[in-house]
Design a protein around this nucleic acid. Structure first.
Lengths: 234, 234
DNA sequence: GTTTTCATGTAACCCGTTACATGATTCA
DNA sequence: TGAATCATGTAACGGGTTACATGAAAAC
């Protein structure tokens, strides 16, 4: 069954659930569309796709193929074949794949609170049931509070022995964590007061709105927009 | 020579520069004392120490040896441990090790701006020359600004197609980066105006807490300084 | 018609963890 | 005396990157 590590598998299934895509595009979405996601390399992505296919969660479909009869039954063109033409491979979620993703969506474990895992979960909150969303948010929060505890303790223990820079680094680190806790508090609050709004399909999803001062997702400010051709990481 | 990757090697040398230690203690310092440092496992640390020894940067010394009936002195009080902790192998920086560390300290490359690398560099700013500190801070800042550019662009491109949660995730991510940029601005500013203060001794200089509202540690009701049995990560 | 970008893949390696094995010392 | 903690190590594996190899389509 291959324990292909959660995050990538999860994100791939989640993205393909929205619409079929080929690997190259998938990777770009991984980098940009989702919030925190680091750039997975092709060396990671393609093998992963293969595994998911092997598990029956995805199927490969020919994308735009040129003409000429594909004499062989698809899959991988044999190396020795002349004119081995390779086209885009579009990956589509199977029924089993969809089912599997739903399962992943509704399951929460201690992993779900860790940084990257959490970001991935959050990115798919749109398809997540509210109850699960709450569990994840609260799990994350107590994870962070735990972390804060330790930082505070360690800081108290060692304060005098540290130079200004180390101290400042720790201070800044703690402040960041505290900020995220406050963010989570807002989110949890607005989950509590908002109404259900489960399973937002591509259509308008902007409506788990006000029910208090922080109703809906807390409104924040906007920013400028420019075309800007840059995209890849680094 | 073995290209043992920067971070751990750097941190170990840096910590041992301050005082000799054995592996176990070293690991704890790695987890707690330094700001951001994730917990390296022994499986990483010990082999690394071996390599550093092989490179001639460290030497192994016997810690306080099993106490022969401790009626008499044998007054080797182990370095920097409270009470009479005893250790098996104490690692001490050699002259070459020290030299090597200084070299690492003064060298900056594009790696130095990345998250973990940066944190490690910052943690040893106390021993870093001011010029280098500036380079690192500014490098980090422009790295983050680059990142912001991309986030903004990607956000502008895809705004409508994303659901509220994804949007919120991106917003929060950007805000965090922006915050760090402001932090760096403050630090750079105070580097500019402060006087040299290389090799910081206990005296307080460089009070970079001129930041008005957020200055210094937010006075949380801290110091529940229980002895605290828990220490390991996770 | 050449360069760029899109697109897919693989093999070698790197950094680090997990799980295990071992033993000494402190404390109840 | 036995449990908890301190202390050191290693083999197997995991998840990911880099560098490479290939080829088609689009842009110039």
């Amino acid at each position: 069954m291959s324990r292909r590590s959660g995050i990538l598998e999860f994100a791939v299934l989640g993205l393909l659930r929205e619409s079929p895509m080929h690997g190259y595009e998938l990777r770009k979405r991984l980098n940009t569309s989702l919030g925190i996601f680091r750039a997975f390399s092709y060396g990671t992505l393609y093998p992963c796709l293969k595994t998911l296919v092997a598990n029956g969660w995805l199927i490969e479909e020919p994308g735009s193929v040129p003409a000429l009869p594909p004499t062989t039954g698809r899959g991988v063109a044999p190396a020795s074949s002349l004119a081995g033409r390779r086209a885009k491979i579009v990956y589509r979620l199977t029924a089993e794949g969809k089912e599997h993703f739903e399962e992943l969506l509704s399951h929460t474990g201690p992993d779900s609170w860790e940084d990257e895992h959490f970001a991935a979960r959050f990115a798919f909150f749109g398809q997540t049931e509210r109850e699960v969303r709450m569990r994840v948010l609260e799990g994350r929060r107590s994870r962070l509070e735990e972390r804060l505890e330790k930082m505070r303790a360690s800081l108290a223990r060692t304060r005098e022995r540290l130079d200004d820079y180390t101290l400042e680094l720790q201070r800044h680190g703690m402040e960041s964590v505290e900020r995220e806790v406050r963010w989570l508090n807002e989110l949890i609050e607005s989950e509590r007061s908002g109404r259900d709004q489960r399973r937002s399909s591509p259509e308008s999803s902007t409506q788990h709105d006000t029910s208090g001062e922080t109703g809906g997702l807390p409104r924040h400010r906007d920013d400028n927009s420019r075309p800007d051709p840059s995209d890849d990481t680094k």
